[in-house]
């Protein structure tokens, strides 16, 4: 109970601080739109090709834009040594992890919710035909991205080249999640349901999220307090 209250306090703090400055979220929105634009030159955005590569395209946009949000997550604690304030408080590392991850999750999901319709317009795709299954895939994939990303945000926060280090370390780890999310997203954007062999990807996403969330919960205290 106290754990949940602390999580809520930290999430609310991150959300409020970010909404005051909108640094990460604005950059992330803009970045997502720019990548969507650039990628439209990479191939002929006809209906046929778009349908085929929509999954890969969207998740490239999501991970790139998400990285900006994740980079800010612990970087936000650097000025005034705010992290020391949190570490001195009676808050376990796992609560800090969940609190921060939830805030990141909300930000990244918000960016995705803007990027999707823009994608639909730019690429002339009706992506809403499997709306709820698509949301499920988005939520599962984004949580995987956020869970790993939040741990590594803490891990890289004091490194000089942290803006590069975070994606460098996190993207290879996320390959299984990305494969599943890309495959399912392509399917759902094309209007097909998740059926048959493809349900394995849904299980993969669930498994990936559970495994890495568990690892993060166990290891975050060590990362933060040695």
């Amino acid at each position: 109970m106290r754990f949940l209250r602390q999580v809520a306090v930290i999430t609310a703090k991150d959300l409020r601080a970010e909404m005051r400055t909108k640094e990460a979220i604005n950059a992330s929105f803009a970045f997502a739109i720019v990548i969507l634009l650039i990628l439209s030159f990479a191939f002929d955005p006809t209906e046929e090709t778009t349908r085929e590569i929509s999954g890969g395209l969207l998740w490239i946009v999501f991970t790139f834009a998400g990285t900006l949000v994740l980079n800010r997550s612990f970087a936000r604690e650097l000025p005034n040594d705010c992290l020391d304030g949190l570490l001195a408080a009676p808050v376990p590392g796992s609560a800090l992890f969940v609190g921060k991850a939830l805030a990141n999750f909300v930000f990244i999901l918000a960016v995705e919710m803007v990027a999707l319709p823009v994608f639909g317009i730019f690429y002339n795709v009706r992506w809403t035909r499997q709306f709820w299954p698509l949301m499920l895939v988005l939520v599962l994939g984004t949580w995987g991205l956020t869970a790993i990303g939040t741990v590594f945000s803490a891990l890289t926060v004091n490194i000089r080249l942290r803006e590069v280090m975070l994606p460098l370390l996190v993207y290879p780890l996320m390959i299984p999640m990305l494969l599943g999310a890309m495959r399912l997203t392509a399917l759902l954007v094309a209007g097909q349901p998740i059926a048959g062999d493809d349900t394995v990807w849904l299980r993969l996403l669930f498994g990936f999220d559970i495994i890495f969330t568990a690892l993060a919960l166990v290891l975050m205290e060590t990362v933060l307090r040695g």
């Binding site: 790993i148 741990v151 891990l155 370390l169 290879p172 780890l173 390959i175 299984p176 494969l179 599943g180 993969l204 498994g207 990936f208 495994i211 890495f212 690892l215 290891l219 060590t222 990362v223």
Partner: peptide, 17 residues
Amino acid sequence: VYSIFAFTDVPIVYFSI
């Protein structure tokens, strides 16, 4: 910590691919 994450990831990578 990174090594633990990487090791956990390897079998998932293998099966997913």
